[in-house]
Design a binder for these strands. Structure first.
Lengths: 187, 187
DNA sequence: CCTTATTTATCTATCAGTAGATAGACAAAT
DNA sequence: ATTTGTCTATCTACTGATAGATAAATAAGG
């Protein structure tokens, strides 16, 4: 694994646990076994590291989503894939979605980082809207499902209890189900 | 207004905008026109300020909720009061719920602060569960509604667009409505 | 093949700025 | 006389960032 990847891995762990401001070049350097100046060599500014990290995270999430829904026709199964992706965020990293973390801090974050985070949510919403059939009225259901998953992660994180996420996710799934039962579905 | 209140007001604004770590005694001191040592006089440790702030915030929110639902019988109107409370958080402070912010940062926060935040969510969930009738099966709907509101605030904040929250809130309201239509209701 | 030049990746050392926190002086109010 | 509230001054620790040295790898030219 390249040093760049090692740095990004360490940065993701720290950033998802404690946030952008609580993550320092020295911490990351210690994690991967180099000096902070070496981290600056790969990512001149902290902003560069932030942008690269969100970009990699976003690509990874949508790649995983595409992989999990390949050949899947059932729309409810597709929603469940999105739910599982978020559930995985909690059990794997024992923490919230990177983009939820950065959204909370978004005031005071470099503009390029904020833009990347916003793009992640835009893509997530677009994906859900398409599953829901694309009718304008379904927009609010896509938004509520995504918000419930992100909010569920947040409450689970502070409660140190994944059951909070599971309940929020089941509620979101129910909202999706009533939506999908009602609409024709063009997939 | 007492200096203590002034400090708490400034701290709330800064903390909700940028988070616990990005808020400093010097910033708050400058906001209220004193020196940082004077802030330490009222709140010896940063942790003390954090705990007091969340406690005051929590009391204020539930007082507002009680006030808005006084004499209200319709359960859907009660849910709407909870929604409005969260909507207000965005338009007033142009930012997310204080407890959502602190949840994100919860790893690395003083334990007393985390406990106070957790308590806020526990109370919010208890309040929603009671509106939903208290059946164990309704637990997930209470959780989904709260999570959707918190997550909606988060996405609206990073997008700088309250419409994201409004859509999530309407989706949450729909989930609540289907729930309340189905259950008997003992209020 | 050998030598020279360049690039890559790391180091040490340091900078100015800011963090939370404390000690002690001072004035005003009780 | 004591308490309350604020000040100045200072401490240690840590932040992001930069400069300059160094070693190893790679490329170029003869």
């Amino acid at each position: 694994m390249s040093m760049r990847e090692k740095i990004l891995n360490a940065a993701e762990t720290r950033m998802r646990a404690a946030g952008y401001n609580a993550m320092s070049f020295r911490d990351i350097a210690a994690d991967v076994g180099v000096k902070s100046a070496s981290v600056h060599y790969h990512f001149p500014q902290k902003e560069d590291l932030g942008v690269a990290l969100v970009a990699r995270y976003s690509e990874g999430q949508f790649a995983a989503l595409a992989n999990a829904t390949e050949g899947v026709e059932d729309r409810m199964a597709m929603v469940q894939a999105m739910i599982d992706l978020h559930a995985n965020a909690f059990v794997e990293g024992k923490s919230i979605c990177l983009c939820a973390m950065l959204s909370a801090e978004s005031v005071g974050l470099p503009a390029r980082v904020t833009a990347e985070v916003k793009s992640f949510f835009d893509q997530s919403l677009a994906w859900l809207r398409e599953v829901f059939g694309g009718e304008p009225d379904e927009e609010m259901r896509a938004e509520a499902v995504l918000a419930a998953l992100q909010g569920g992660l947040l409450i689970a994180a502070v409660s140190r209890d994944a059951a909070h996420f599971d309940r929020a996710a089941r509620g979101a799934a129910e909202l999706a189900r009533t939506t999908l039962d009602r609409t024709p579905g063009h997939l």
